[in-house]
Every structure is written in C-alpha cells, then in structure tokens.
Nucleic acid binder design. Structure first.
Lengths: 373, 373
DNA sequence: TGCACTTTGGCAACAGCGTTGCGAAAGTAG
DNA sequence: CTACTTTCGCAACGCTGTTGCCAAAGTGCA
C-alpha cells in the first residue's frame, strides 16, 4: 500500500486497482495464447474471446511481444482483406519445476511456459528418512533438472512440490502426512525456498496437483479427479479452479462413510469408501471395488453437481476398463433416476508424470489467471 | 459491445472494463455499508477495509450519496482531530420481494435494501393446482405486498422466487419438482416476469435461498445449511457465495448413500441419508436420525472442508438440541481422528421467514457484489 | 494491369478510473 | 488564542481501455 509521503519515494503511481485490471486482462490473453498452442491465434480472435476491443488486444500483445512472452507466427489465409497475423506463446520465455514426492519415489519435471516437459528426473525416496535428507534430495534433483535441460535453466519461475497430505497449502506447512506423522508441523515451503535460494516454492496435495494438471490440460468446467492407489483421495475442480477449502482439507474422499457401522477403517471410523474399496481390491473383487467407488462418486456428483469424473492412480491403471465400467454403471443408474444426462466417467489422461506436471502448473497457473494468481 | 461506427451513436464512452472495475468497487463499499447497519461506518474505515485510498472512497461515496443510496449519519468522537463522519446505507432507496413456494403454503416478504422485512404475506397454496392458479396467486401476493408497505412500493428491484427444486437457476426453468412432476420444463422466471410487467425475476431452490440468507446475514466463509423437513437437502456456501453447480444440481444431500444396499428410498436408490434419517424420525428415534444426519454432514465436511454446519427445517426445529447434539458428536469424533479443530454445528438463525428473506436476497445480493452480480 | 473493396491493425486523442499533492474544515490540547 | 492533529474534498496526474482515423495488405472484377 505504501501511503507514506515522507521519505520521498515516488513510486506506485497509477493505482493498484488498475494494475489488477491490467494483469487480469493480460492473463486472459496469455491463457488463450497458451490454449491455442503452436498454431497460434489472431488478434481479432483474442478480442472476441476476451471481450476486449481489438485495439486493447493490440496494446496488450505489443507489451507481451516486447517482454518476449509472445511472438508473431505467420498469417492466416485472407478472407477478402488483409490476412490476420497469428500470435503464439513463446514457451522458452519461462520455466517451472514440478516435484512429486511419493512414499517411495520422487519424480520431478522441468516444464516450459506451455507446460511441456523439457527435462525429467526420477529417483527412489524414503519419505521417512527425515527432513534434512529429503530436502537435500529435492534440492539436488531441482538443480540437476536445470543443468540437464537443452538450454540450461538457471532460475525457474518457481518450484511446485506436492505430496500425499494432509497439509496447509497457504502456509506451505505439512500436517500429519499419512504414514509419516513425523512431518507434522514442518514448514516445507519456507525450508525449501531458503535452501533453493529465494526461488518461490508452492506446496500442495498430490491429488490437487493432478486435478490442476487436468484442468490446465483442457478439462473445462467442474470435475472430480479420483485417485485410487495405496489410498483413495480426490482433487476437486469447480468452475475451472481447484477447490482446496479454507484449510486445504477438501478432497477427503476416501473417508466418506458409505456403510454405516461397516468394517473398520485405518482412520478409526467405520465403513469408509477407502476401506471398502481397498478391501475389495485385496480380495480380487475389482467389480465390487468399482461399484463402491461409484457410490462415492455418485454422492459427490449429487452434492456438487460436477460435469465429469476422472479416475487415476496405480490401482485404477491396473484395470482401467473395469473401474470405468463399474463407476459408470452407478452414475448412469443415478442419471436414470434423476432424469438428467449421465455424468461421463473417464480415465484421467497424463498417467505417469501427470502429478509432477500438475505440480509445475502450481507455479504456471497464476501467470495465466488460474488459481489464486 | 456495439462496435458499429456507421450510425453515429456516440455512447458508451469510457470503457466496459473500467465500468466493471467501478461497479466492483462500488459494490464493495455498499456491502460494507450494509454490514455496518444503522450505526454506519466512516470513510477512512471503508478505505482500510476495501484497500482503496481514502480519496477513492470519497469519490465513490459521493456518487452513492448523489444517487440516494448512502447518507451521512452523525459523527464519531474525535481522536485528536476532525471527527470522522459516519456514513450509512439508506435502506429505503430500494426494495426487493422474496417468495417462498412450499408444497402447501406460500410465504412472501417485502424487504428494503438492508434486507429488513417491511411487509409480509402468508397464504395457503396448492403447488399442484396448475401453473395458471399458482402464477395468479403469486402475482396477487406480490402486488398486495407493495400496497401494504408503509411507503407504497411501486416497483421493486426484483422478485426472487424459490421452491423445492430441482430446477435450472440460470434459465429460471423448473424440472421435476419433488412431488409435482407436472412442472417439468415450466419457464417460471419468464412467465412470472411477463405477468408482473418486466420486473426482474430470479428463481432458485429453497435451500439455496436459505443458505444465501444466512451468508448475507453474517455467516462468513464456507458453510453448509442442512434442511430437514419433509425431505432432506442442503445449501452450500463456498467462500461467501452460493455453490449451485453448472446445472443448479448441487446440494443433493439427501440422496447421498451412507448405507450400501440399505433400505430403499423414494428416489429408487438404497441407503440414502434421507431414507434412513426420515425413517428414524418416523420411528421416534431422534437420536439415530441425528447420528445419520451427522454421518452425512461429516462426509460433506471431509469433501469440501467447510467451516460450519447449520441445521434447519421443521423436523430439526421440533427438537433442535437433540439434532445439534447428535450431529456434533459425529463431527467431533471426526475431528479427534484427523487432529483438526472440530467443525461447529448450530441451528440456523432466521427460522420461519428465513427462506423468503433469502429469496429476496437473490435480488439484493448482486447489488452488494455477492453472487453472479 | 489497374482500380475498388475488404479486412487488419497501429497511431493519436480521449474519457474515466484510482492516486497524489495540497489546502480548508473541524476538532483537541495547552 | 495558538499549535497540533485528523478528516476529507478539489485539482492535477498517470494509466487503463476506447474511439477516430489511416496505412498496409490482401481479394475480386473490369
């Protein structure tokens, strides 16, 4: 705010609110450029899509070109007059690092502005080896990624780190990470930022990163990403942005009770979807596991009225068709009862590096006006 | 938009985007004025709370005073200099009508800008009597409300109509309203707007109106309003605004399955919270009903990470303490397992006219920058 | 080949937004 | 009565997107 007039600093003219407007419109344009991909998009199309006047778009794109973020990329065929000049994003103008900390493994990617993976690393990891060891390993991998890239990347825009949670996204502090309670209270964001030398760090749950990656990757509207691996969690995207809740606690899908007084779950409750679902998987009864997962998904669909359900995680990937079929059956039955169109179910694209890429998007998304910007 | 230069119209100077910024800031100020109530709020306090400069606030409030929406209301005690001038909202500057259509009864209120009820009507209603009869009844009551007010209100800002749903809030079209399938596809908003003579009409679900009323009434953050009457539904408020989902389908709390293959429900599924809960109520087992409701609420809390759970509806009001106690027990047990602070449970304030008042807020909220503006 | 027409897109002038500089108004304290 | 503090509006300013206008670059037809 800086409303002190005494010292003589004569900065911040113009107005904070107008700056907000400017960056909002700039982000809008950047996001359209990104979505258009290498084919690019013309100024007039940008104007139509943003609702801005062509002249405003010209001004904004001129700034972007000056900053090296956008460039001209040929022209379209004429429609009777001067042909439209096509603009595209310059992906090399910025890079981001995404790190996925799993229980036994670390995956990291370096992406450009576009989200395209430029370099990647994969290493074994023991999340229980203590803060010092894990931090050192992460810092090492992040440094190696930059050197390994085609064009060496000295300073990425930021580093996104994701892990199973629960945690506090806003402060970047871990809570009782499932299976590794010793992390409770550890300020991962600040510790890592200091270690990496003032590179911005963002911390989030792995399911949120996966969901964000899908949202940026083209999944529009509202959807749920259900992750079935060693546990069962969800990432929720509502109206294009990830819903975390005030304490980053949203997405606790697995401990939703679907069988009153059912079999005990590791969490201490009874009849949780996770317990029932993993139990069925263990018994080899994939069909029942899928049905239970479908019931949980149907509950979610009813509560939030989402557009789509996407499935992922190692267990799903082991037999994707069975899970899709089972979940779809439950949702279709629901749709027949309500009279609405059935909610589509698919396997989430991305797979292996999906989560790490999503982690990188934690850094990139704000640039394009997605998330808390 | 109007980008045609041919005719010579020289309107719309200034810019659509700047107008959006202006109305956003104006709404921010208006909302603070409303929240402050009759005691009012000073310009400097407005500046601090909005993040605007004092001068910007002066300009905005000057416009508001010119338009009759705000007025000076005395001054505060001096803190060593010129005392602050207190501003307040002028509630009589605008009015809104809220109509609550229940299965057997119609309640309607006329409120001022503040949301204070100025006049009210209550009449028996048969929702199954056909469109013509219901429309006539509503139009009659709305007209009577305006005449009955202390100062006759000729043209309210709009009319909010709410009923059990399901329906399409955006288009104002009803779907298969529970118990009255004959309404399916009826364009209530447009039909009523035409009948009332171009007064804006908004249509929504009753639970959403109740939730909106609570949100405007001071419940901040994210919360769920659970309504237990002849059915069981929920209104969700996420980050201060009502979450309806893309098809106004959100809040289908009652048909959340909490007992796999449990007793059949009217919806055609098995083990729905509604069936279990109402079944327990019918047996006189309030304790079990509250426990089941609590399990559903806990599922919701886990999925969305909300701050608060509020209970309402005729069945709850019959024995509020038992329901609060039962739901709280389940949520507290959950909190002990996760280690988080327990989610508070309360009975929703408002009671009788709460839903109709919330319906009026459907009209007023956009003025104060809440909702789809 | 040349002319009329269409479409793109930049330059310059403009209105309106919030901000800064400054001074009048309205209190308190000595 | 004087000195000081605090509130708050007027005037000038910088920046935003918008409008008016024109050059550039194509197509289509005579």
């Amino acid at each position: 705010m800086n409303r002190t007039n005494g010292g003589g600093m004569r900065r911040a003219t113009g107005g904070v609110n107008l700056l907000a407007l400017r960056s909002h419109n700039t982000a809008l344009v950047l996001d359209l450029l990104r979505t258009a991909g290498p084919e690019g998009i013309s100024r007039l199309e940008l104007a139509e899509r943003t609702g801005l006047t062509p002249q405003a778009v010209s001004k904004i794109t001129a700034r972007l070109r000056e900053d090296g973020l956008a460039a001209e990329a040929g022209r379209r065929a004429s429609t009777g007059g001067k042909p439209r000049t096509v603009l595209r994003l310059v992906p090399e103008a910025g890079h981001a690092v995404g790190v996925h900390l799993d229980r036994d493994e670390l995956r990291a990617v370096l992406t450009d502005l576009d989200g395209t993976v430029v370099a990647q690393r994969r290493a074994p990891l023991d999340l229980g080896a203590g803060a010092e060891a894990v931090l050192a390993r992460v810092a090492g991998v992040v440094g190696a990624l930059g050197d390994g890239a085609a064009a060496r990347v000295r300073s990425p825009l930021g580093v996104g780190v994701v892990l199973p949670g629960p945690l506090d996204h806003e402060r970047g502090v871990l809570h009782r990470v499932t299976g590794f309670p010793e992390w409770d209270g550890f300020p991962l964001r600040d510790a890592l930022a200091e270690r990496l030398g003032s590179v911005p760090v963002v911390v989030d749950k792995d399911t949120n990163a996966a969901a964000l990656g899908l949202a940026v990757g083209g999944e529009g509207g509202s959807f749920a990403y259900l992750h079935l691996g060693t546990g069962l969690g969800a990432g929720l995207v509502i109206g294009g942005s990830v819903h975390r809740g005030p304490r980053t606690g949203a997405g606790e899908f697995g401990h939703q009770v679907v069988q009153l007084d059912g079999p005990p779950c590791g969490c201490g409750d009874r009849g949780c979807v996770e317990a029932l679902c993993l139990g069925a998987v263990e018994r080899g009864d994939t069909q029942e596991a899928a049905r239970v997962l479908g019931v949980g998904a149907a509950n979610l669909v009813g509560l939030l009225d989402i557009d789509r359900v996407l499935l992922g995680g190692r267990t799903v990937e082991a037999d994707p068709e069975a899970f899709v079929r089972g979940v779809r059956a439950v949702l279709d039955a629901r749709a027949r009862r309500t009279g609405d169109a059935p909610v589509p179910v698919r396997v989430a694209s991305g797979g292996g590096h999906g989560v790490a890429e999503g982690a990188a998007q934690l850094v990139l998304a704000p640039v394009f006006g997605r998330g808390e910007g």
